[in-house]
Amino acid sequence: MRKALLLAVAALALSAGTTMAQKKQLVIVVKGLDNPFFEAINQGCQKWNKENPDSEYECFYTGPASTSDEAGEAQIVQDMLGKAETAAIAISPSNAKLIAQTLKTSNPTVPVMTVDADLAAEDSALRKTYLGTDNYLMGYRIGEYIKKAKPDGGKICTIEGNPGADNILRRAQGMRDALTGQKDLAELKGEGGWTEVAGCPVFTNDDGAKGVQAMTDILAANPDLDAFGIMGGWPLFGAPQPYRDLFRPVADKIAKNEFVIGAADTIGEEVAIAREGLVTALVGQRPFEMGYKAPQVMLDLIAGKPVEDPVFTGLDECTKETADTCIQK
């Protein structure tokens, strides 16, 4: 009797395992698994799985170990597109051009979309839609906060991530446009009173510690610097204590708008840092929502349903005064 029961349990387990193995995958490939921002996307993906246990599809989250591994992400995309289980794929391109070339080479037969970061405009036909932040608007809002604090302009340094990441480049463009009232300036040379100092923008490959060190070096070389525009929250959520140590001595200047810091994202310690008055303003994204919505968008694409392009997920804006209520619930 006991043996029969054990055999029955084993058979059920094997059946369940087979069922799980046969599930089709709605793949999300992010820039790197070492970034808390992307972990929030994963949490949204897993919530979708929990809410849809009987679906023939599962949300499958993956990416290279490090956000600096652009080639690794491209290889994962290629591998996922070669798997029979892959039913659709959502990609956050670390290097937009490299991912575009990977898609051209792979010639995917399943729906492709982008999430969080998009392909360059000239490659947009390679994907069905983009789901995520309006990155130009995000950068523009950061620029508006900086300009409001210092309307006469000053010296600024832009902190960016990967030089090939389309989302970061769009944010930087939005910030420059807001500061100057002009369009498509690649560098600020006095327009609107703003000048980007030598050595900027700084590309940090989404590394928080590298970002704080870069800002330390820029401040040492430019004691008359007026502002930082940080296009991703890496220095704040990736290295919160070094960031605090760097800017606590100028907290009074930040409070008086004598020194201005506009930064992206509202995750990890960032809102606490805003509450402490160590950043002028944060303009944040909604990564959990991206991960939660991506599977349904992929299912709509699989079914041939019309899907808007782009699908924006909104922004959260935080200052010291609004830190307790600034995040959408």
Rank of each mutant, 00 (worst) to 15 (best):
A74D: 06
T67F: 03
D54Y: 12
N42L: 02
A71W: 04
C45G: 05
C45P: 10
N35G: 12
E56A: 15
K31S: 08
F38E: 04
E51L: 08
Y61G: 04
S55D: 10
F60P: 05
P36F: 00
S66C: 09
F38A: 05
P53L: 03
C45A: 04
G63A: 09
Q78I: 08
E70Q: 13
V30A: 10
G44Q: 01
G32Y: 00
A65S: 15
A40C: 02
F60A: 12
P64H: 04
D54E: 13
K47Y: 00
Q78N: 14
K31L: 05
V77T: 12
K50N: 11
D69L: 10
W48F: 00
G32Q: 05
Q78K: 14
G72V: 04
G72D: 05
K31A: 05
I41R: 02
P64R: 07
F37R: 07
T67A: 14
I76N: 11
L33H: 05
G63N: 11
S68A: 15
D54K: 15
G32V: 03
M80F: 07
L33G: 10
D69A: 13
E51D: 10
V30M: 07
F37H: 14
K31G: 09
A65K: 13
L33C: 08
N49V: 00
G63R: 09
D34H: 06
I76K: 12
A40H: 04
D54Q: 15
F37D: 08
P53R: 14
G32L: 02
Q46Y: 03
G32C: 06
C59G: 11
A40Y: 01
T67P: 12
N49G: 07
V30Q: 10
A40D: 09
F37I: 09
F38C: 07
S55L: 05
D54C: 07
V30I: 13
Q75E: 14
I76D: 04
S68C: 04
V30H: 09
A40I: 03
L33S: 09
Y61E: 01
G32F: 00
E56G: 14
N49T: 05
D69T: 06
P53G: 10
G63Q: 10
D69Q: 12
A65I: 06
A74E: 06
P36T: 07
